[in-house]
């Protein structure tokens, strides 16, 4: 009888240890997702901060591009308004801002004086890098979300996840206007 008792106790202990290990693993992944999200936030804010400076610098050189500049400023205001919203909504606003910025920088190519200005070059480097940082932090965030979601869906960690109510993470997908316009090819 005692042997059976010991076996039962042993199984319970093993299950408990497994539960704790999986639970801690899930917590670590969830924190990683949170940290990655905070990282995106930092970079998006940084971009918002750079824009007034950029518009100010560009204004003196660009006489005929009022619309392009206004589009950037408007997109920035919009993006700042949804700053506390969920990933989906923010991604849309930030996508618009990205494409407005790209248009502005493309237009800047037409102004040789502007392109030679040290101030503009430094700003351009910061903007390029911030764009990269946004996409790299998004990349890391999405990878983290994928790992986390896999863990919450796969056996046996999904049992722990549902018991301790770990929710799914939301991906940060950027849908730029230009990307949405690409024609879809369908095979029927």
């Amino acid at each position: 009888m005692t042997i059976v008792l010991w076996i039962v106790v042993g199984i319970i202990v093993i299950l408990l240890i497994a539960f704790i290990t999986i639970y801690n693993g899930l917590v670590r992944l969830r924190n990683q997702v949170k940290n990655a999200w905070a990282q995106i936030d930092v970079q998006l804010k940084r971009r918002h901060d750079l824009i007034p400076n950029l518009v100010e610098t560009v204004k003196g050189y660009m006489k005929h591009e009022r619309e392009t500049m206004e589009a950037v400023t408007k997109a920035r205001t919009l993006a700042q308004q949804v700053a506390s919203a969920g990933p989906g909504e923010r991604a849309k606003a930030e996508g618009e801002l990205s494409s407005a910025l790209t248009r502005l920088l493309a237009v800047a190519e037409k102004y040789p004086d502007l392109k030679a200005s040290q101030n503009f070059l430094a700003l351009q480097e910061e903007l390029t890098s911030t764009e990269n940082k946004i996409s790299f932090s998004r990349q890391f965030y999405n990878d983290s979300v994928m790992t986390y979601n896999n863990q919450t869906q796969m056996f046996p960690s999904n049992v722990v996840a549902s018991v301790a109510s770990f929710k799914h993470g939301e991906f940060f997908e950027v849908t730029v206007a230009a990307e949405r316009e690409t024609p879809k090819v369908t095979f029927t």
């Binding site: 990683q32 990655a36 990282q39 970079q43 430094a122 480097e125 910061e126 890098s129 990269n132 940082k133 790299f136 932090s137 990349q139 890391f140 983290s144």
Partner: peptide
């Protein structure tokens, strides 16, 4: 050297 430093920051973010 802003470019080098920025690139390093980018890679720091990408590598986590």
């Amino acid at each position: 050297h802003p470019r080098l430093y920025n690139i390093a920051e980018e890679m720091k973010i990408a590598s986590g």
